[in-house]
Amino acid sequence: MNAPVSFAESKLPLLLGALFVIGLIAPFAVYPTFLMKILCYALFACAFNLLLGFAGLLSFGHAAFLGTAGYVCGMMVRDVGVTPEVGILAGTVAAGLLGWLFGWLAIKRTGIYFAMITLALAQMVFFLAIQIKETGGEDGLQGVPRGHLFGLLDLSDNIAMYYLVFAIFCFGFFVIYRTIHSPFGQILKAIRENEPRAISLGYDVAKFKLIAFIISAALAGMAGATKTLVFQLASLSDVHWHASGEVVLMTLLGGLGTILGPVVGAATIVTLQTQMPDSVGSWVTVIMGVIFVICVLSFRRGIVGELQALIKRSGVN
């Protein structure tokens, strides 16, 4: 009975290894900036999935972490003049701290109220971003230099920048993978499955949720900070609630609660968004809406989730 599970698990390292190799050679086949955009959103979606897929917490304010980290990184690199790795670290830490505050407030409630609190807090961040002078309002933070990694490696070269982004993505992905498959991750899954029971077994569920929230926020921030360096711009659209909605779509489309689902979802959505406007113009939002409805109605497990179920079925028969 456990054969399909161990089948999928034994094949996972192989699959990840293959994807890693593809990631290494990809910039020679595909436009690197496009790949970097996919990787940034993939990390963002993976971070979001840690919270929704494994802790059962629907945050509707993750744009705040993506965007805030972008602004912090942009200011540190452009105005303070730090090296890019310090800028990314600063953005990550800032998002983590903001996540601490958001999480601390939001986990006092569950379900729709939790989601609404995160949305409301994220809207406050958006309001601040548009009002205060330092963030550049509608224009965002422009002209952020990519700089030299550790003061040595020139990142204005797209291939060099790509490998930095790829390394950051791999690091973030590993952190998430490890968190899910850790003693902490076990309890997180237990809370997702049956919260009152986890309490009755003596676990302070609020602490577990808060730690998960902070990790998720920090990694979402890491994605945002990296994205700022790639595009040399911290944009207002990254703190907009659209970004919070998009990450929900990416995760659901790819497969909620699967380790690779958010990556597939992010790649699909970014590809559609980048390629479609040439042929269909502003219809792109309508097409995304239709995709979302089809996904939720007919393949709720998402692309990766459905594939897993297919493999499992064929393994049983």
Partner: peptide
Amino acid sequence: FPHLTVMENVRIGLQRKLGTEFHFWKSE
């Protein structure tokens, strides 16, 4: 915990005494 195995269910009960329930950096 319906989507965990029977063994994992009992382990959730046993796990707290290891004192590693917050260790997200450790392997399961």
